[in-house]
Design a protein around this nucleic acid. Structure first.
Length: 499
RNA sequence: GCCCCCAUCGUCUAGGGGACCAGGACGUGACCCUUUCAAGGUCAAGACCGGGGUUCGAAUCCCCGUGGGGGCACCA
């Protein structure tokens, strides 16, 4: 069911914690946010959730920014671009959370807790042994405000916990699943401010979403269990909740569970990755990745599957999101990538191939690559294949295996004779175009009573020195008269040695 | 163990009571086209988890099983 809030300008945010590389799940969440923001003329905000100093990775924020840029998902407000509701790093917003936590304590909706980690650990184990759900069971919840205040004033180390009601229930609406009811007795007195004074996610994210006027919260389904806590926090402050949209999870290709670190590593060996940063180097286009990922958990109709980012901006709707988990299918990524590869104008495709050609040590130039682009784009799946397809255009000379110059069902001498005739025909050509070459050589095939594949295969191996290559005549045209003829003559020389 | 979510071809999905002996895509197989490889075209195999209801009628609604997934931290 669409909500009227989906159509007014939304304020949405992508709020990753800087603990590692941006992965596919994050990319999808960021994209859905972006789509709704652009569609409604709202704002897309990037917020860094760095309240955990232990897991903080100083390189992660840059990776997130780079990856998002690569995907083309530009944000309107964020740590690097600023905005009216900053700062956009939670570590820089510490002062904002403190009075909020104080307010909850004031109202009796939170309490100071002085229990040690050891005590909590012991209590948890004891409860687990009894087979009950482990929850906070210490004495601090019932401390008088005066005593708690006194201990804090005396410098006692403490955290702040949310005082979860012991009875009743709370019903929260998730946009994909409808109303979900949780019994409060199953909920915990969760820590909302750590002993280092920084809030945990539960408080920080809710406070920021409220302060930043976030209207829709897109996040992974792994957050569903803490949704009641978050709703309680919102309600404790008397704030209006955002639209909650819990996205399905991405499962490993086998469909058995989330991706683990171990499997992520193993994947690298097979040329697959879930990290956005690494996809470009593997030859994937942002367009392909986006299209692929968009369709894992969302669909437009029963048949449309090719989408550009702009298409998605106009067509995305929350109500067509699918709540069930999806196994990652890299074969399908190949498919979408090749689709988008073919959709690129030749010069653009060439531009994107250049880094790979240069990395392969080929003296490629943009003009030539642009001429090659149209004849290879239908056979390329990823950009990293560019050198394989194009290398022979840029080498000074090629070294065909002599045996490869003997056509099927022909002797070496016959092959040599045929190749010699072909060379002569081409040499005599007034204009070096693929149509003219094809016309001549087809006539020759006829004259010699050969099959097209026999002659063309010879010429292919002589000029490209590889059995699989782009269309022959177009290739020779691009190669140019001089180089082509030189290679043919060199091949004739090689054949000489076999006769 | 407790809590929560999910459930259509191997995979991603369409389907929101009759239009469905369930549609599309990837992948797979066959054939056609063909100078290699692709692309393209045609065809094929392939699914409503099970059981109860509700209804004249359920893939679609409800319940119970089962299965899968997620969560139970001073991490997000």
């Amino acid at each position: 069911m669409p909500s009227p809030r989906d159509h007014q300008p939304v304020r949405v945010r992508f709020a990753p914690s800087p603990t590692g590389l941006l992965h596919l799940g994050g990319a999808r969440t960021a994209m859905y946010n972006y789509l709704l923001a652009r569609q409604t003329g709202g704002q897309f905000i990037l917020r860094i959730e760095d309240t955990d100093q232990k897991r903080y990775d100083p390189t992660a924020e840059q990776d997130i920014i780079d990856s998002l840029h690569w995907l083309g998902l530009q944000w309107d407000e964020g740590p690097d671009v600023g905005g009216p509701h900053g700062p956009y790093r939670q570590s820089e917003r510490k002062a904002l959370y403190q009075p909020l936590a104080a307010q909850l304590i004031e109202n009796g909706q939170a309490f100071y807790c002085f229990c040690s980690r050891e005590e909590l650990e012991a209590s948890r184990n004891e409860q687990k042994a009894r087979g009950v759900q482990a929850r906070y069971a210490g004495p601090c919840r019932d401390l008088s405000p005066e005593e708690a205040q006194a201990r804090v004033a005396a410098g006692a180390e403490h955290v702040i916990r949310f005082k979860m009601p012991r009875e009743g229930s709370i019903t929260v609406t998730d946009r994909l699943r409808g109303d979900i009811t949780f019994e409060n007795r199953n909920l915990d007195d969760s820590v909302i401010v750590k002993s280092d004074g920084l809030p945990v996610y539960h408080l920080a994210a809710m406070a920021d979403d409220y302060l930043m006027k976030i209207t829709h919260v897109f996040r992974g389904e792994e957050w569903l269990p803490s949704l009641p806590l978050h709703a309680h926090i919102y309600r404790a402050f008397g704030w209006t909740e955002p639209e909650w949209v819990h996205l399905s999870l991405f499962l490993k290709p086998s469909g058995k569970g989330k991706m683990s670190k171990r499997e992520t590593e193993a994947m690298r060996l097979t040329g697959q990755t879930i990290f956005v940063k690494e996809m470009g180097a593997l030859g994937f286009l942002p367009e392909g990745v986006l299209n692929w990922v968009a369709l894992m958990g969302w669909s437009y109709d029963d048949s449309t599957e090719f989408f550009t980012l702009e298409d998605l901006v106009s067509k995305f709707t929350i109500d067509r999101l699918n709540p069930s988990n999806a196994a990652i299918d890299f074969k399908k990524l190949d498919h979408f990538n090749s689709l988008h590869l073919r959709a690129l104008p030749p010069e653009e495709l060439a531009r994107r191939c250049m880094p790979f050609l240069v990395a392969a040590g080929l003296p490629a130039d943009l003009e030539t690559v642009t001429r090659i682009a149209p004849i290879i784009r239908e056979r390329m799946v990823t950009l990293d294949e560019a050198p394989d397809w194009m290398a022979f255009f840029f080498k000074d000379k090629v070294e065909p295996a002599p045996e490869s110059l003997i056509a099927k069902d022909l002797t070496a001498a016959e092959s040599r004779a045929a190749l010699a005739r072909a060379t002569a025909e081409l040499e005599a050509l007034p204009e070096w175009t693929h149509t003219a070459m094809e016309e001549k050589l087809r006539a020759l095939v006829e004259e010699l009573g050969l099959k097209a594949g026999q002659l063309f295969g010879l010429v292919r191996n002589a000029t490209a020195a590889q059995p699989v290559s782009p269309p022959l005549f177009e290739s020779m045209e691009i190669l140019g008269r001089e180089v082509t003829l030189a290679r043919l003559k060199y091949a004739l020389g090689l054949l000489e040695t076999l006769t």
